[in-house]
Design a protein around this nucleic acid. Sequence first.
DNA 1: CGTGTATTTGATGCATATCAAATATTGTGG
DNA 2: CCACAATATTTGATATGCATCAAATACACG
Lengths: 247, 247
Amino acid sequence: MFSMNFMNRRFLPELRGFSMERVPKEGRAANLLTPAQQICLQSIATLVDVRHNGLIFGEGGHADFLYAVATGMARVSRCSESGRRQVLAFMLPGDMFGYPEQGIYVNTARAVSAVTLYRISWQKLTVLLRRDPEMHASFLTRIAFDLRQAQKRIMTLGQQNVAQRMASFLLELIEHTEFYDPQRRHLSLQLTRFDLADYLGTTPETAVRILARLEQEGMIKRLTARLLEISDVDKLNALLEGRRRNG
Amino acid sequence: MFSMNFMNRRFLPELRGFSMERVPKEGRAANLLTPAQQICLQSIATLVDVRHNGLIFGEGGHADFLYAVATGMARVSRCSESGRRQVLAFMLPGDMFGYPEQGIYVNTARAVSAVTLYRISWQKLTVLLRRDPEMHASFLTRIAFDLRQAQKRIMTLGQQNVAQRMASFLLELIEHTEFYDPQRRHLSLQLTRFDLADYLGTTPETAVRILARLEQEGMIKRLTARLLEISDVDKLNALLEGRRRNG
DNA sequence: CGTGTATTTGATGCATATCAAATATTGTGG
DNA sequence: CCACAATATTTGATATGCATCAAATACACG
């Protein structure tokens, strides 16, 4: 349990990717902040780097800051009473996280790979929101978006088998050019198999086996453990059509 | 596919249960609206009754209203591309639902049993929120609460087996005196086995078998299909401790 | 009372969690 | 930079959980 937390702070040039880069098919426009709003947020934001596997905040900690991913990937997780870890979400560029409950974080956030974050004091942000109804509304919209993302995961976990969940996840990731090179079809998967399993609601062994099966069926190729070639997007999509079991 | 929608409108006496009755261990205070805020909302809310299985709103429909449950139970669901229905949440007294995405509902809401709802025009509500930062902040808090509820479901679906999910659900329900009589230990379960299965991410057959097993082990008793006796809360809680599989 | 629907029980086989172990990779101290 | 330890990944064996198909029973509604 090494929970040391090295964060290098420096000032930010711009608030790139804040709440807009991560938006798939749906409301890109609705989540976009106006230039004025971005400048406004910049004035109270700090840029921080967290190294590989570094702690961003921990369950039960005092929730002083809101975070937004600039580059890299973070993982937000929670441990159940039985002690097992569930990854609630991976935070990609443009994603926000660190909402408090009664001033306390209920989840734990760590850097998957090295990650650069915008850090905003809740105290300052609250003041700002009270003064700026437009910004306040934007935040409401943003959290509603996060709620829908969570609902998508409920859909996935509730009715797809592990292969389908894996396919869904890969298909989501390749939308992000930071991790996917469409030319070479290379997907950089910085996650461990444990991260992957805890996200998909399965075990590392099963996650590996599923990857092996997808490779066998020509959908992907495991170049290394952390680098996939996405060989056939259509086949991956076709996987999602099937039922949970083939009887 | 009978989507007829009879709603009886009448004016409301008070905004009971709005955003505070449903709060378990966590932020009851944080979700509570002040009396002034309640009065404010009452002035733009309408009380509507929806009969058993009646449609409240449908996926893709124009999102004109926000709803809050006064009495009864509603179900919010979505169909996956494969056509299967997933129940995202059951809405109990105090719960709010009907958040739009780009002005459109992305989920479908129906009455489980007869339900009484507070209906608030989004148009009016938006105007009100812009003028009242306190209310605006309360809404932000409320949606953040909904997000955490969704995260709880991700935990449940991600790592519990069906018996554990069933136990979790029953344990949640008995917190609501509208459905649970602590004296007789009677839990009124208005859901069909299909609703139950689509909520738990399983099939009606399995849901039945799990109920049979819980009964066999003395945790519950099926008085009728829609009425359970909760015989041993401790045993139900103990179920949650176990692993997904007993090897 | 009859018909359609919901619930329950049964049989069967696949999906996958778990235990075990081999192999590959990463990190560390010399 | 290398050797070695620690960790991560992969493969194998096995048994259980549960989806699916089938059919009987119970219930609701006209």
